[in-house]
């Protein structure tokens, strides 16, 4: 029996400002990717193949943030050609590590990185996809979890709701029987305010969560920051913890500003 309709839904994968790690998670699906390619027609995925098919597309997976004027034009094109648009990773949902430029003097990063910054045509900010176009589903993580990516695609194909929890990493620790690293050892951990999805990777090896999936559904960042201070985390450490891949996520940013030194050069 042919399980799949004669015309399979088309899938396109797009890259914006990013490291390609989330796209690699799709390639990492290996055997599952072969099965997936029977269920969908992979029409545009330049990380995998230079052969591309023109749009429109049924599903677009978008990796990366909007960081250049060209990105702005291109994301609107992608949206116009896609029935469903799913973003992948912290860059696409919060601006990514490159979002740190949003809080620095305009052009300072470009000048320090490039020998000829005059050739770089970038925006002053790195912003999430949802600030520019309508997004149907945001998959979190830096990088995303490949199991969750398959789940989102399968759920979409089966027209059901994806089983992606919006709760905290704590629930994943507890379900896995991991003793809390914050309570048990006083390790600085962002787990209680971080979106689940990684399967508690860092706590499972005794490290604190560093928030790569961004804020959970109802993150009480202030209460956690107070407790982290009580176990000996300094304001500097706190501000660094909150200022990484999801620095521009509003919930993390607001808390970061409570701990950051307004004059970092002075220290």
């Amino acid at each position: 029996m042919n399980r799949h309709p004669a015309t399979r839904p088309t899938l396109a994968v797009w890259k914006f400002a990013s490291c390609d790690g989330c796209q690699l998670s799709l390639l990492d699906c290996e055997d599952d990717l072969l099965t997936l390619s029977e269920a969908v027609d992979i029409a545009h995925f330049t990380e995998m193949s230079t052969a591309t098919v023109e749009g429109p597309y049924d599903i677009s997976l978008v990796e990366g943030s909007i960081s250049t004027p060209d990105d702005v034009r291109r994301i609107h094109e992608v949206r116009a050609q896609s029935k469903t648009l799913i973003t992948l990773g912290a860059c696409a949902s919060a601006g990514g590590i490159q979002g740190l430029r949003n809080f620095a003097a305009a052009g300072s990063y470009t000048r320090s990185v490039y020998a000829h910054p005059e050739y770089i045509d970038d925006l002053a900010t790195s912003t999430p996809i949802a600030e520019h176009v309508t997004v149907d589903f945001e998959l979190r993580g830096c990088p995303i979890d490949k199991g969750q990516l398959l789940e989102v695609l399968l759920a979409h194909l089966a027209r059901r709701r994806p089983l992606i929890a919006t709760s905290s990493v704590c629930e994943e620790c507890k379900r896995a029987g991991i003793a809390c690293v914050l309570v048990g050892r006083g390790v600085s951990c962002l787990g209680p305010i971080t979106h689940a999805g990684c399967g508690a990777l860092c706590p499972s090896i005794g490290r604190g969560c560093f928030g790569c999936f961004g804020p959970s559904e109802s993150a009480n960042t202030n209460a956690l920051a107070e407790q982290l201070r009580r176990v000996g985390t300094s304001d500097l450490e706190l501000s660094r913890l909150l200022h990484t891949f999801n620095a521009a996520a509003p919930v993390f940013l607001a808390q970061y500003r409570r701990h950051a030194d307004p004059n970092p050069e002075a220290t």
Partner: peptide
Amino acid sequence: AERCLGCANCTMV
């Protein structure tokens, strides 16, 4: 509620 993280640790344990 000011202090509660909503992390669900209490219910899990």
